[in-house]
Nucleic acid binder design. Sequence first.
DNA 1: CTGTTAGCGCGTTCAG
DNA 2: CTGAACGCGCTAACAG
Lengths: 339, 339
Amino acid sequence: MTTTGGRSRPVTLREVAQHAGVSVATASKALNGKADVHPDTRRRVEEVADRLAFTPNSLARAITAGQTGTVGLLTHDLEGRFSLPILMGAEDAFGAGRTSVFLCDAREDAIREQHHLRALLGRRVDGLIVVGSKTDPRPSLGPDVAVPVVYAYAPSDDPRDASVVPDNVTAGRIATEHLLTLGRRRIAHVSGDATYAAARDRAEGVGQALAAAGLELVGPVRYGSWSEAWGRAGVGAALDAAPGIDAVVAGSDQIARGVLDALRDRGVTVPDDVAVVGFDNWEPMIAGSRPALTSVDMNFETMGRRAATRLFARIAGSPDEGVETIAPRVVVRGSTASG
Amino acid sequence: MTTTGGRSRPVTLREVAQHAGVSVATASKALNGKADVHPDTRRRVEEVADRLAFTPNSLARAITAGQTGTVGLLTHDLEGRFSLPILMGAEDAFGAGRTSVFLCDAREDAIREQHHLRALLGRRVDGLIVVGSKTDPRPSLGPDVAVPVVYAYAPSDDPRDASVVPDNVTAGRIATEHLLTLGRRRIAHVSGDATYAAARDRAEGVGQALAAAGLELVGPVRYGSWSEAWGRAGVGAALDAAPGIDAVVAGSDQIARGVLDALRDRGVTVPDDVAVVGFDNWEPMIAGSRPALTSVDMNFETMGRRAATRLFARIAGSPDEGVETIAPRVVVRGSTASG
DNA sequence: CTGTTAGCGCGTTCAG
DNA sequence: CTGAACGCGCTAACAG
């Protein structure tokens, strides 16, 4: 029974039954809380099982159950900051029950994705969650996959698939509405890479909120990259072009940090002179910013939980399709608060 | 064969055999590349398998193989930045073969850990990697776990277990040696929470390097918290106490960012006046810092790969115990470069 | 209440 | 080269 070297084979139900002096069927029923077992017998079996550290073999159980109680989580953004909270939400939703999660990282590679897909199907997962790295639609795995699939973050390009995505338009809108509520009227928007749907969607939301208030963005949407450096450069350009700006919607928390730094370098006071709001509510960026950054939380964990819940329902048989969006929320902090 | 709603049961080997007009045994041999099968027969079987999208059932295979080809990854730091690269390294090492990874997040909770442990053992994983959230030793799962276990990041408190940990003493040493090489002599150390072994180990390494050069730290090790705010405050205190400082070893990249910000606020030029080095080489922190931050990379991915490799060897039967440290490396950037 | 029998999907003997 | 029989660990259906 040493740790290093030879391992002992796990205890089987048969052994438990033998030690308890009953048949395997009785032992099975006793341990699974089924009726028609004498209380004394049940207690005896349970005691033996406990003593032998019996752990039922889920694989064997899966054979008859027709379900393995496992799901695959196929991500393309393991190192990124989006799939992690999604993963946690899903793990949370599954972990409460008796479902285990296979994690696979395909790293944006279609071949690796195919490889992992085969492996997961070979392990007879009951379902799949596919997590993309961008909010742009991604190719569907197709209707021929033998198990239910839910797409998270990146929706499937097939509307008949089930997808759960962040609502970036609303995010842009509520960020802007928050600024409008504070009385800001001359609002600029420094965003990330324009090839990302997330950037364009947020910009659209910003535009909607302004239009509803009879206002316009000060200057064009300044697309760039998702970096602090761009935040610094972008806000500089915006201020130079239009000095009277009283608020900036930054395309992400990283951009927002850059914006805050550049404003401080210029001697502009936040939030008194200019209010700043970011997106993602990403703790590491938020924690260090001066002042603390108001940010729109996309509720990724909720997204993961919803994906898991929908997958569960699909596995249980309920039909379900279409894209579901997760509502974001504004988390107010010092970069807009005292304005 | 619709996606939503009823799913078709996966194709079995039996069906393939029937469609190909052969026995299951023949079909099995044909698909597994075994000898004693007529080439024509083999091709026919392969063709049918392909047409029916046959995916061999890994669970059934596991029955005879005695191994499931799965491992459990039990982490306590899923949202943290340490377990992720470890996870990626492990996933990388396993993914190349035919091993799948069950991911469980126990969140520092012993009960949840026990729950997940039972679930994983029930699924008959071939082995386990346990990832801690701190480098302080953690309780061993004990010698009674039926499968090999490798501890990563946090070592087991039982020296007979196999552990893979970062080498924080060396990290502190090489960070300081790098500064000494640049001619810096008056070095301060602003670190994180002193209750973390990581903080104390790095400080020890810093001290070793200085002692070897016949020098001493300027001021005490300034322990605080792992935050930018503390980096700003800590370096301020250090400068006020001893104005002649020409380099700062920061306890983490986040602390280093705070240090950089405070120095810039004070009009101190980096790296000309003061050089700064951080730890972890954490991309999000590195990316935005001004100037780019020199940092000690703890090589977490290597750690994950080593953990996976050692686990593999243990599963294959080789005895293996003891703590293995992963060598860190200095990544030089602007915060020390032109000094 | 308890024991017996069958069978889940596959690989692996062993006879043919 | 092929086919039938066995076993893995467990549960469901039925018999006692």
